[in-house]
Simulated assay, not measured.
Amino acid sequence: MLRTQQEMIRAVSHELRTPVARIRFAVQMVEDMTEEPVVRRQLQDIDGDIEELDQLVDEILTYARLGSDSAQGIQLATETTDCRAMAHRVVDTLAPLHAHLRLEVLEGEGVDVEADPRYLQRALSNLVANACRHAEGHIHVSVTREARAVRLDVEDDGAGVPEADRLLIFKPFARLDDSRTRRSGGYGLGLSIVQKIMAWHGGSVVVERSQRLGGARFSLLLPTPDMLQGEPRHAWGRRIGDA
């Protein structure tokens, strides 16, 4: 049933691309035919809506590709990954898009993990992008090595996430009925994608109150090699996630 559902989601998402592309082409043609300011403003709004549809289709396809919650049968292309360098890449990419915010990677030692760098960076990027939607002025990214895990924290100075909703927000298409969600938009898939990526790696993602900035603190927890000895990756991820 899960496989059928995933195939249906992928098929529908791919089919959506064709009419969206046709609409974009038609809008560009009409835009080239008129200089009326009112019409051009309307066309720009339509183009913005089309861009949102494209992003939504990409998110749905990514979510479907990640597969079931069990993460069984997934083959990761793991390699030694410098988490701090990855954090700097994510911040350097997103900071120019949010000039009103101060994004920084806190100082610390280099921390390497065995992970799929493409998907791990996607998970961290989703968390930082999520923080950008909710922060008032500051976002901190930190990387630390603990006794049993490598930890990547993303903290913001926004309103935070109510304790009662801290599990709900990881469900696909979940939207909290509060000011944090209403003013930020989003599709409700970004955090679900993060959770699935971490399940692939045998890790987890958790959210708490940021003691440093007062808003939310999202944490990616990756097991150290000694934690994974003698048990599958996804078992450790479920255990720490439940904790």
Rank of each mutant, 00 (worst) to 15 (best):
Q55A: 15
A99Y: 04
H100C: 10
A129Y: 12
P96L: 04
R212I: 06
F218P: 10
D177A: 12
S13G: 11
V39T: 15
V12H: 09
H98D: 07
R65V: 00
P232T: 06
L2Q: 00
C132Q: 02
E52A: 10
H234W: 06
P172W: 15
D45E: 15
L76D: 01
L101A: 12
L103S: 07
L189R: 02
L53C: 15
G203M: 06
I197Y: 04
R238T: 03
R17W: 00
G237Y: 12
I50C: 03
R102C: 05
V194K: 08
R166S: 10
A71S: 05
H140F: 12
L101I: 11
E107V: 05
T80K: 02
E15V: 06
E208M: 14
V105Q: 07
L43Y: 01
L94N: 08
R17P: 00
R183H: 04
V128P: 14
D92E: 13
T81E: 02
R40A: 02
L2S: 04
L103H: 05
R239N: 14
R40L: 14
C83L: 09
W236T: 04
V90G: 06
H14V: 10
P117T: 06
G73N: 00
D92F: 08
L61K: 13
E155P: 13
P162M: 02
S70D: 00
V205D: 13
R84T: 00
M29G: 10
I193A: 03
S210N: 02
V20F: 10
C83W: 01
H134S: 13
E36A: 07
E36M: 14
F170I: 13
L220F: 14
T62E: 08
G203E: 07
I46V: 13
G186Y: 03
E36R: 14
Q42D: 11
S142F: 03
I60E: 00
S125F: 00
A164S: 10
M198F: 13
V39W: 10
S70K: 01
R41T: 07
R148A: 02
A95T: 10
M29W: 04
A21H: 05
L176S: 13
L228H: 09
R151N: 05
L53I: 00
R151F: 13
G215K: 04
E107W: 01
L101W: 09
L66R: 07
V30T: 02
M8I: 01
P37D: 04
V39Q: 12
Q211V: 04
A26V: 10
L152E: 04
D54R: 13
E36C: 11
Q42K: 12
E163Y: 04
E114P: 03
L106F: 05
H134G: 09
R24P: 00
P96N: 09
G160Y: 01
A174G: 06
G73M: 03
V206M: 15
A77P: 09
E36P: 02
L152A: 09
S184W: 14
D32Q: 14
G215W: 03
L53A: 08
H234A: 07
I139L: 14
R41F: 06
S192R: 01
H134L: 05
L221H: 08
H14C: 08
E146R: 13
A216L: 12
R217M: 07
V90E: 12
D32T: 04
D45P: 12
G108E: 05
